[in-house]
Amino acid sequence: MKPFTYAKANDRADATSQAADDATFIAGGTNLLDLTKLEVMAPDRLVDINRLDLAEISETDEGGLRIGALVSNSDCAAHVRVRQVYPVLSRAILAGASGQLRNKATTGGNLCQRTRCYYFYDTAMPCNKREPGSGCQALQGFNRIHAILGASEACIATYPGDMAVAMTALDAAVEIESAAGEVRLIPVRDFHRLPGDHPEKDNILEAGDLITAVILPPPVTGRQIYRKVRDRASYAFALCSMAAVVEMDGDRIASAALAFGGLAHKPWRDEAVEALLVGEKPSAALFGRAADQLLAEARGYGSNDFKIALTRRVLIAVLTEATQEGAAA
C-alpha cells in the first residue's frame, strides 16, 4: 500500500471539493483497501466520506425509495420496505459476499466495485484495465469468470457485483453530485460502461463526482426473482446471475425486466429480449427464443464457454418460475 494522505470530509461540498483535486473517496473500503494493499490501486489521497449524511433510506415523493450512498448492504437488504416491495434487491444483496462484508460495504461503494479478473489483481501481469495499453492476459489465459457479452479485445473482465444487477432490473437510478455541486440522475443500467478501448474506466463517474444515492422507482407488481450460480454454495462471485421482474396479465406476460450478472463489464439488460416476451404466452419455445436473442452475440474465450449454455438454462428456468400459474408476487 502506497502512502497516502487521509482526510475526513465533513459534508458533501467538502468531499467533492477535496476529490476534485484527484483524491479517492473511501466509504466502506472493502474493495478499495483490498486493491490498495496489492497496489492494484495506489491513490495519493483518500477522502473518508463516512461522516456525510448519506446513510438514510427514505421514501420518495413518487412512492419509490431513496437509498443513501452510505447505507450498508446489510441495512439495505434488511430494510422492511425493500424486503416487501423490492425483494429482488434484498435477495441479490444477500447473495453477495459475507455478513461481515455486507455490514461494511455501502450502496455507493458496491456500485463502484471493480472486477475480480485474476490478471487485473496480479500486478505482475499485463492488464489494460490496470495499466492501459499493457495488454490483456485473460483473453488467451484462464477466463472462467470472464465476459461472454459486450467484451472487447482490450478487456473481457466482468462487473462482479449482485446488488447492481437487481437495481438494473428495477430501473433504479444513481444520483451523482459533481464537484461543481450539480446533481444528475443516471440509470443504473447506464452507470457501468462496456470496456471498448478504455477498460480503465469502469463507469461514467468523472473526477470529483460523488454518488449520493440510488433512487428506486415506485414498486412494480409482479414476480421478482434473483438467481445466482456460483462455484460454491456461498461466499463466491457469480458465474451467472439473473434478476427478473415479471408481471403477468392473465395468461400473458405483461412486462419483463431482466438483468444479468457475471456475463459482462456491466449488469446486462437486453430490451429486445424483453420486447420479445411481452404480450406472449409463456412457453418453452418462447423462452428458447428469448435465450437465442440474449445470447446471439455471446462469445466464449475458452474456459468461460460454458457460461453461454449456463445462461441459457438459467434464463429459461427463471422465466418458467416467474410465469408459473399461481406464482406469488
Binding site: 475480480r116 485474476y118 496480479d122 460454491r232 454454495a233 463466491a236
Partner: peptide, 14 residues
C-alpha cells in the same frame, strides 16, 4: 492464477 482464498475455493460452512 487463483492464488487467494477468494478464487481458490475451499468449502465454506454452507
Amino acid at each position: 492464477v487463483n492464488h487467494d482464498l477468494a478464487e481458490y475455493h475451499i468449502p465454506v460452512n454452507l
